[in-house]
Design a protein around this nucleic acid. Structure first.
Length: 257
DNA sequence: AAGTGTCTCAACCGCTCACAG
DNA sequence: GCTGTGAGCGGTTGAGACACT
């Protein structure tokens, strides 16, 4: 016996949403706020799966969505963030106001991938084609403790693995190609994701980063966590971060999520 | 105008994680 | 600690739009 299905598939609509369904969903969320997606379809009178409602709202109906083409700045930001985070679309989306993870993922697959390939760069590793090295090799070269503290689990980008190697070998005579600060001097890695403004009081939609950090809100409206540190580090990340600095790893990259 | 190939992106699927009981 | 449930994520699919012949 597997887990129960998220909905009665026999009695749910699938495929494209109609205007009437959109209107019902919008009206329901306006009246009751987001949250409890499983029971929402019934409450809103929709013959849809809760997951489908959530996706429709987040990716298409949310009022704060920015529609239209991506700007050159957004392109560059996506590329930079992808080089650091890999296919963590929700994290990348959190850095681009009005854009959704689905939208960025699609845009990456249809435009940016090709753009990088045309430049002779591997879209996954962001390295020149032909110089792509196995991430397994990089990963396995790390001793166990560092392995365990990586916040972003497989698939990690080689850049992150390289970063940790660099951190560990600062006194090494072998110079790394460039630190991320040198490579992306204008990229602010203090990633901040505020709780969505569209969230209704009853439904404090946790940002996607809650999956990697403790979801307890800190004093402000932002959640934060250190990049490259243990999963489940708490909300007092600012303090914890200092402690981690003292322990000698992840000294200058921090994601405040 | 019709047929065919390609591209785009909304939506689905399967999985993992967090949490409550 | 175990189990069930809900939420969310990333990969994939497929219908419709568009381009080309």
């Amino acid at each position: 016996m597997g887990r129960s299905p998220c909905c009665e598939k026999a009695h749910t609509n699938k495929g494209a949403w109609t205007k009437e369904e959109d209107d019902r969903l919008i009206a329901h969320i306006r009246a009751h706020g987001e949250g409890c997606w499983r029971s929402l379809p019934k409450a809103a009178g929709l013959m849809r799966c809760g997951k489908s409602c959530r996706l429709r709202w987040i990716n298409y109906l949310r009022p704060d969505l920015k529609r239209g083409n991506f700007s050159e700045e957004e392109d560059e930001l996506i590329i930079k963030l992808h080089s650091l985070l890999g296919n963590k679309w929700s994290l990348i989306a959190g850095r681009l106001p009005g854009r959704t993870d689905n939208e960025i993922k699609n845009y990456w697959n249809t435009h940016i991938k090709r753009k990088l390939l045309n430049k002779g760069l591997d879209p996954q590793s962001h390295r020149p084609l032909g110089q792509v090295h196995s991430s397994n090799t990089t990963c396995s070269s790390l001793p166990a403790p560092e392995h365990e503290i990586l916040a972003f689990q497989s698939p990690r980008t080689p850049e992150i693995a390289d970063f940790f190697q660099y951190e560990r070998s600062e006194s090494s005579p072998i110079e790394p190609a460039a630190s991320k600060d040198e490579e992306y001097p204008d990229l602010n890695l203090e990633l901040c994701i505020s709780l969505p403004v569209h969230s209704a009081p009853a439904a404090s939609r946790a940002s996607s980063v809650d999956r990697t950090v403790d979801s307890k809100p800190n004093s402000g409206s932002e959640l934060c966590c250190p990049m490259g540190l243990q999963v489940n580090y708490g909300a007092q990340c600012e303090n914890r971060y200092s402690e981690e600095n003292a322990s000698g790893f992840s000294s200058h990259y921090r994601l405040v999520l």
